[in-house]
């Protein structure tokens, strides 16, 4: 079976700093893969390389077998139509009301009328547990949790084949984080979406992932089923999963 997303020896540096150092990963259709790793290990860069927001220095990135690594996002409309993205800070357009945020892709890509797009946006908001009364509000009037849900609604409104989740639960209280996790699982499973998420929230990773990968110093040092992450046998993964200060991963703390 052709991988939905295939990365082969992807490298990316910023100046002398190697952020991605030979990433190879295949993601099957309808599979949910979560990349874990500490802050600043290059998880977001990995995601942005796949999305085309950043161009990889070296290596191949294929989506449905089509090579996209060196094609900037602005020049690959057909591939972008397959994507949905939930940003870490939601990245809602604050000049537009909630419904127009959710319907943005429908208006731009599918050229729906504003009335049709608004109906679709309200229906998608309902899927993430938000009522129609929220549709006319401005993003600034929403709480962090509601903004995440609107961001999720925007990501799935165009019925994408692949959705990227960037730290979907960061900054949320544990209950709201679990609500978002449930919504992600429900959306991914129901719509048969392929998902690539990055997080350092292990509870979230266990809940939404079929497979978990750990990124450390630009390399994927462990890849396995989420059920095995507790007993990976990899001391780096063990330290990260248990959140231990002592272990092979040394944090640079200046005292």
């Amino acid at each position: 079976m052709t991988a939905k997303i295939s990365l082969t020896d992807v490298r990316k540096s910023f100046g002398p700093k190697k952020v991605l150092d030979g990433i190879t990963l295949d993601i099957a259709p309808k599979e949910s893969v979560v990349v874990i790793g500490g802050s600043g290990t290059g998880k977001s860069v990995l995601l942005k390389c796949v999305l085309g927001i950043l161009l990889a220095d070296f290596g191949a990135i294929k989506v449905d077998g089509e090579e996209v690594a060196q094609v900037p996002a602005s020049d690959r409309d057909a591939v972008n139509r397959k994507f949905g993205m939930l940003f870490q800070g939601s990245a809602l357009f604050d000049s537009l009301p909630v419904w127009e945020n959710v319907a943005f892709g429908l208006l731009q890509r599918e050229h729906l009328s504003r009335a049709e797009a608004k109906d679709r946006a309200v229906a998608t908001l309902a899927k993430v547990g938000l009522g129609s009364d929220v549709a006319m509000l401005s993003p600034a009037e929403l709480s962090g949790g509601m903004q995440k849900r609107v961001g999720l609604a925007r990501a799935i409104a165009g019925e994408p084949e692949i959705v990227f989740f960037d730290e979907p639960t960061t900054g949320l209280d544990p209950i709201m984080a679990d609500v978002i996790n449930d919504l992600i699982v429900a959306c991914v499973r129901k719509q048969g979406i392929t998902a690539l998420s990055i997080t350092h929230d292990m509870h979230s990773a266990r809940k939404i992932a079929d497979r978990i990968c750990m990124l450390y110093q630009g390399k994927l040092i462990w890849v396995g089923p989420s059920s095995e992450v507790e007993n990976s046998g990899n001391p780096y993964v063990d330290q990260f999963v248990h959140g231990a200060a002592e272990g092979p991963i040394k944090m640079q703390v200046h005292r």
Binding site: N80, R81, F87
Partner: peptide
């Protein structure tokens, strides 16, 4: 706030 990146991912 990554809104410009969001535009790109929404084919705009």
């Amino acid at each position: 706030t990554e809104q410009i990146d969001a535009l790109t991912t929404l084919s705009t």
